[in-house]
Design a protein around this nucleic acid. Structure first.
Lengths: 231, 231
DNA sequence: AGCCTTTGTGACACCTTTGTGACATGATTG
DNA sequence: CAATCATGTCACAAAGGTGTCACAAAGGCT
């Protein structure tokens, strides 16, 4: 079983079930954290980075749907994949979970294999659509530590360079104008010249070049820049 | 029920079920197309754009999983959300679908509401991943990145060349006078000689020729130029 | 064929965009 | 407070895009 480096938060108040989930996810190579109530879950979600949330619908303190609603309203977690676990079998209840923003649900009791498969599906989906952690084959970004791994070797970037790379890697191949980059990387309200983007791109490239990956930050003349994996 | 302008392809060989799905999706404001076998599905997927695919696991001609594998291997459809419908209830079978790249599955018989909710969840996820591309069979234009693909191979044009090609490709076969081209490509207020169009056409041709597509930009003597796919 | 018109072609100059290194400034660290 | 670091800006260099011209080639007419 390969390691995935994905960190999954399990919010579940029944210890046996929580442990069961944990065991299978660990076996599938995931890192896990267990939490048994909604309030603690919110705190954890604010402080740490997770790649997926497994949420029991019935938990003490807050109901699962409340946590979900809160989650979706926060910028940081608004796109976090959520797998909801529920003992309720009524279809309309499950539907309600989906409509509230859960990405999938699983009814109790569940088959461990199905759990693992659903988790894998959600994680796979998040690679192409989400803004959490991006791997291309060669370059891996770790949002929390602001670290970049190129072919496994560590490369530390300055904050701006990191954010710039991150932004472009979110949509590989897509071209970003300097204005767009200023807005997302520097912030809407910065009084920085567009040429500053060029300078930062250069500095970013310089770092990547020393790891043999200079070509993946490309200039699109007259328009802007883009990230593209080399063939 | 609001309209979503999303186009969903339903691949399902049992008419009553296909119709059932269609009715509910239409009610939810989606546009739908039904197809009853795998081969036709592939053709439709290549020619048209869909926002989501609902795929029955058991269909004539090809098995659902084959279509899925094929789909994921194609650039154009590699990120298309897929909801797999299956009569199989064995967990491991469903798991296999997910691992093959389906984004979700639904067991028959299913609740219509659940179908609609799952579709909504998948569509919500995929927002913003697709970009407008204009294709003829051999030549594909990507407006965003100013890139042109000829038979899949990348060809990057200069801005003017791109705009020129784009303009002519919008109405294939139609002849454009130099004046028209100056107006749309260069802008109404440019002080450029008509012969400049010729020069740019030449440069455009040069690029296309190196990809074996020089003939599609044709001269209409005394009038102007046109784009025409070669037979 | 001979002549004229239209289009193709390559060269060149000019201007715009981008790369690059240096430097100043302000923040952070110890 | 000194040293280091991140970053914004500038000036200059390099690269790239485009307009124009002169000439060649092609087409059309009598």
């Amino acid at each position: 079983m390969e390691a995935t480096d994905k960190h999954i938060l399990i919010v579940e108040d029944e210890p046996p079930i929580a442990r069961l989930i944990e065991i299978h996810l660990k076996q599938a190579g995931h890192q896990t954290t267990i939490c048994d109530n909604g309030l603690d879950a919110q705190e954890l979600l604010e402080k740490n980075h997770y790649d997926l949330l497994i949420l029991d619908r019935m938990i003490p303190g807050k109901r699962g749907l409340d946590v979900l609603r809160w989650l979706r309203s926060k910028e940081k977690t608004s796109v976090l994949p959520v797998l909801m676990v529920t003992a309720l079998t009524m279809t309309d209840e499950r539907v309600r979970g989906l409509n509230e923003g859960a990405d999938d649900y699983l009814g109790k009791p569940f088959e461990p294999d199905e759990l693992v498969a659903r988790v894998a599906a959600l994680l796979r989906r998040s690679v192409s659509t989400l803004t959490e952690t991006f791997d291309s084959k060669l370059i891996q970004l770790n949002e929390e530590s602001m670290e970049v791994k190129v072919e496994g070797k560590l490369l530390s970037l300055r904050p701006l360079e990191f954010k710039l790379l991150q932004t472009m890697m979110e949509k590989p191949g897509r071209v970003f104008s300097r204005e767009q980059l200023l807005d997302t990387v520097w912030g809407m309200d910065s009084f920085v010249e567009e040429r500053t983007v060029d300078a930062t791109i250069k500095r970013l490239r310089k770092e990547l070049i020393s790891f043999g990956q200079g070509e993946c930050v490309q200039t699109v003349r007259g328009i802007g820049y883009r990230f593209q994996e080399k063939a």
